[in-house]
């Protein structure tokens, strides 16, 4: 692999930024990389970053699938709120909040409700043919109202140790939330790359009309990705609400849709659809989580991370903008002949 190839690789930018960030953290913050085992659990800043990133990674995975078909899902934050509200509502009504069966019912109900919300988005986009950004805007606006409707406008607090495990528990020394995210990621990678699903999604994103004429059930796939996205958001909502042992319709998943879209874009998936990279998305999500955590540990006020994010977005967009790249590379590297489109 030549240097140029590496420079042009889609994953180069996020990886480089992550490395720079971690280096900064290493220099400015003592004991950043100290990982210790306490009570048989892993502790330390890197573990915290992973834990903090789990909901974002989940949401971003779903978002990647949606974006690959040329769509976008703004409703993920609201779905998180709804899912958490649903689970806490059921658990709060349990006579024994520590019953594993009861918690399982709550979790299943919450995810089922998320699936329904995803189906609704998919219906609007695929069947009614509404622009995705608008279709999901509806649920984004109404979803938080729905969450508060479920909780009757109150914050429901729960005391359930089985439920707590989802967001704050450990298995084999590893945080459960991270394991959940990893499993979902692995399943998604397998489903898209070991089958033809990835190709067909990219085809739908590349051209829905052409895909339909090639015999691809574009609508079915479109509905599928919105359901998948809502499912991911639902799980993320469970992790969030389990972590704080409550359902908060206002703050759960607030602005996470923007972070998730950012993660997808950082990962090199174009917003116009087509080619997608789950590895890139995961890197992007980790990068954002690292940014938030590092800023805190370095002593930068957490608010400043917003400015950071703005800079990251601009830099990334410029880096991925063909025009900007052409300006940079014009002198040094003529693009290979095969890539140049010859206008007739």
């Amino acid at each position: 692999m030549t240097l140029q190839k590496i420079l042009k690789s889609r994953l180069m930018w996020p990886v480089a930024m992550l490395v720079v960030l971690l280096l900064c953290a290493l220099i400015f913050s003592d004991g950043f990389f100290d990982i210790r085992i306490q009570d048989g659990h892993l502790f330390g800043t890197p573990v915290n970053i992973l834990r903090a990133s789990a909901p974002l990674v989940l949401v971003a995975i779903g978002m990647t699938l949606v974006i690959s078909t040329g769509g976008i899902d703004l409703s993920v934050g609201s779905v998180m709120a709804v899912s958490g509200a649903m689970a806490c509502l059921i658990i709060g009504d349990l006579s024994n909040q520590n019953s594993v069966g009861g918690v399982a019912v709550a979790v299943v109900a919450a995810i089922a409700l998320s699936l329904v919300l995803g189906l609704w988005n998919g219906f609007l986009v695929a069947v009614l043919g509404i622009q995705p950004i608008i279709a999901t805007l509806i649920l984004m606006v109404a979803g938080r109202g729905l969450a508060q409707l479920i909780t009757s406008g109150q914050i429901i607090n729960v005391q359930s140790s089985p439920y707590k495990v989802i967001g704050a528990g450990y298995v084999l020394g590893l945080p459960v939330s991270v394991l959940i995210a990893a499993v979902v990621l692995a399943i998604t990678v397998l489903l898209t790359r070991r089958t033809a699903l990835g190709l067909l999604l990219e085809s739908v994103g590349g051209s829905p009309v052409a895909s339909r004429l090639a015999g691809i059930q574009a609508r079915r796939f479109t509905v599928m990705v919105y359901i998948a996205s809502a499912a991911c958001a639902g799980i993320a909502g469970l992790i969030y609400s389990s972590n704080v042992s409550s359902a908060d319709g206002n703050n759960a998943g607030n602005l996470i849709e923007l972070d998730a879209i950012l993660a997808v874009v950082i990962g090199g998936t174009a917003l116009t659809g087509g080619r997608f990279s789950l590895a890139g998305t995961t890197l992007g999500a980790l990068l954002i989580a690292t940014l938030d955590t590092t800023a805190q540990s370095v002593g930068i006020p957490p608010e400043a991370t917003l400015v950071f994010k703005a800079v990251v977005v601009v830099v990334l967009c410029l880096a991925q903008s063909a025009t900007f790249r052409a300006m940079l590379f014009r002198r040094s590297t003529p693009r290979p002949a095969a890539r140049a489109e010859v206008p007739a």
């Binding site: 923007l258 608010e303 400043a304 991370t305 917003l306 400015v307 994010k309 703005a310 025009t323």
Partner: peptide, 27 residues
């Protein structure tokens, strides 16, 4: 300018503007 000259999606460019403006306010 970013949207026009670098053909960045308006959605993303103004998202950056949103982060930037809110961040500056908080700073």
């Amino acid at each position: 300018a970013v949207i026009h000259f670098f053909k960045v999606e308006p959605f993303i460019a103004t998202l950056a503007g949103m982060f930037l403006a809110r961040g500056i306010a908080l700073l």
